[in-house]
């Protein structure tokens, strides 16, 4: 396990940079992780992140399909917000574990 300093706090992260404890997350931390990934978060990003965190809190498996059903963003929009590997990137910024879904 590694640690990182986000928003003035020492936060435990996995080797791949995912927060170990989702409860330590805050919007400030999200902004800092996003910056490391070369992203500037908009309100739309934050809406998606909050949706992802809610899903995670309920113990649901996160899928791209679920995000497209959220009403916040469609799939194309999701790829535009979090380019490359959107589900992983969004999970990392949302402070939840690396997604384990294949779809």
């Amino acid at each position: 396990m590694a640690t990182k300093t986000y928003a003035g706090k020492t936060i435990e992260v996995t080797d791949e940079g995912y927060l170990v404890n989702a409860n330590e997350w805050s919007t400030e931390i999200a902004h800092e992780i996003a910056k490391e990934e070369g992203l500037t978060l908009s309100d739309k990003h934050l809406a998606v992140l909050n949706f992802i965190r809610e899903k995670h809190a309920k113990g649901e498996t996160l899928t791209i399909r679920a995000i497209s059903k959220s009403g916040i963003v469609d799939i194309k929009g999701f790829y535009e917000l979090f380019p490359g590997a959107p589900l992983k990137l969004a999970s990392k910024i949302a402070g939840i574990p690396k997604p384990s879904s294949c779809v």
């Binding site: 469609d74 790829y79 779809v103």
Partner: peptide
Amino acid sequence: LDIPTIPEFLEMITAGG
């Protein structure tokens, strides 16, 4: 398991590039 239908899968694949 939230596995999409075939038309939905095609949409997802192309939406992602």
